[in-house]
């Protein structure tokens, strides 16, 4: 019985771990935001800014990062695809546009991902999922257009994408390399049989 209870706890933990929308916050204007302040004592602010700026260039093919009004600040707009449905019928459900705001200062930097706008996709005459022209829904206004389940699915993916960008930004600023797992090929003597 203890094992059964343990497994139930495990299932709930797994579910909770994947409720990634909990990573999002709401700002003072009640808009969804992913906001972080990171201590960075060992690097000059100029270096942090330059590395983050170079990273931001990789976020979008259409847009380039633009310098902000504050010192050592920039912003860039980009987008990512969201998916809906399960198993066999899983496919693109839309795209989310967002803005990354970044600012470096002595010993720290901060950034936020905000202005999340969802553009739904619909299957076109050729069988491709494409954006519905003219329909853009700010995630804060999701309740007026979509069900709670649909809202949660998109918020989960916004949070997942925010976490992924966070990891890549950290990696770019720290200049850490992604460890490449070496797979050893087992040797075999084909003469012995």
């Amino acid at each position: 019985m203890k094992k059964v209870f343990g497994l139930l706890v495990l299932i709930m933990t797994v579910q909770h771990a994947f409720a990634q929308k909990d990573s999002l916050q709401v700002d003072e204007n009640n808009n969804y935001v992913y906001y972080k302040v990171v201590e960075k004592a060992n690097l000059p602010a100029d270096t942090v800014y330059e590395r983050a700026f170079n990273f931001a260039k990789t976020l979008s093919k259409e847009n380039k990062p633009a310098k902000g009004q504050a010192d050592k600040a920039f912003n860039i707009s980009s987008k990512f695809i969201t998916y809906g449905g399960m198993s066999l019928v899983r496919k693109e459900s839309g795209e989310v546009k967002y803005t990354l705001n970044f600012q470096a200062a002595d010993g720290k930097y901060r950034y936020n991902l905000s202005n999340f706008v969802f553009i739904p996709y619909k299957r076109d005459r050729y069988g491709n999922m494409t954006a519905v022209p003219g329909v853009e829904v700010a995630v804060e206004k999701f309740a007026a257009k979509y069900s709670q389940k649909e809202k949660d699915a998109v918020l989960d993916q916004i949070a997942a994408q925010s976490l992924a960008i966070e990891a890549r930004l950290k990696q770019a600023i720290d200049r850490t390399k992604v460890p490449v797992k070496q797979i050893e090929v087992k040797k075999v003597n084909t003469g012995n049989w």
């Binding site: 994947f18 990512f80 695809i81 969201t82 998916y83 066999l88 019928v89 899983r90 496919k91 693109e92 299957r123 069988g127 999922m129 699915a153 989960d156 993916q157 997942a160 994408q161 992924a164």
Partner: peptide, 12 residues
């Protein structure tokens, strides 16, 4: 539900 990879085969 991650956004890293394309769906392997899209059915609609």
């Amino acid at each position: 539900d991650t956004t890293k990879t394309d769906p392997p085969l899209v059915i609609s």
